[in-house]
């Protein structure tokens, strides 16, 4: 799996801000040079993500194209106060992937149903956004590999517990207990964040 390089994601963390600036340049000036730079920074990662979620090579490139076009058209909707550029890109590729994976007439649900475009103001603040990022990174690096591996499987493969058990050749009980441990940790972190939210709301209003 991907978990080889522990330092990779702190490197990536440092590279988050430039993505934000590129997206802003696209939003404000329809800046094609910024678009090309963003494509060069993110395109191959978007493709890697789509393929790990099960898309074939050609399908993954279609997803990359649709994502990048969405970035071009909706860059003005990017709000750096609510999320980093990378997280915004993540939500776009997630949505494109599920919309393009719909195959049968029973697949009636589209990403716009699940994540309608926001109607009102977001409550987020810069502090909160940075905190979110910090929490996510702490979490990802705080989890032991064996728990993180299962979390990744959820993100990429949407497999059931028993399918994961088969894939990793481990008893079902082990998968369940590892996921439970990972979730407990996530929950602690999410609660910490809630505490911050309350503090922020109290000081802002």
């Amino acid at each position: 799996m991907v978990l080889r390089d522990q330092n990779l994601s702190s490197e990536n963390a440092k590279n988050l801000r430039p993505l934000d600036d590129l997206i802003k340049r696209i939003a404000e000036n329809q800046d094609q040079a910024a678009f090309v730079e963003l494509f060069e920074k993110a395109g191959s990662k978007l493709k890697a993500y789509a393929m790990r979620c099960g898309a074939l090579d050609g399908e993954a490139e279609d997803i990359v194209q649709e994502c990048m076009l969405t970035v071009w058209r909706k860059a003005h909707q990017f709000n750096p106060k609510t999320a980093s550029g990378t997280t915004w890109l993540y939500t776009i590729v997630r949505n494109k992937r599920i919309d393009m994976a719909r195959k049968t007439k029973y697949d009636v649900v589209v990403s716009d149903d699940l994540w309608p475009e926001p109607e009102g103001e977001d409550l987020e603040t810069d502090i909160e956004r940075d905190l979110n990022g910090k929490i996510a990174r702490t979490l990802l690096h705080g989890l032991p590999d064996e728990q993180r591996q299962i979390v990744y499987k959820v993100y990429f493969e949407g497999k059931s517990h028993s399918e994961i058990a088969n894939a990793l050749d481990l008893p079902l009980g082990t998968i369940k207990s590892r996921l439970r441990l990972a979730m407990k940790k996530l929950d602690t972190l999410a609660q910490e964040q809630m505490t911050w939210l309350i503090i922020i709301l109290l000081t802002n209003f």
């Binding site: 997280t87 996510a136 993100y155």
Partner: peptide, 14 residues
Amino acid sequence: EQLGGEILGDSQET
């Protein structure tokens, strides 16, 4: 979601 962003950032390049 932020976790997803981190994971996307961690993806190897294809």
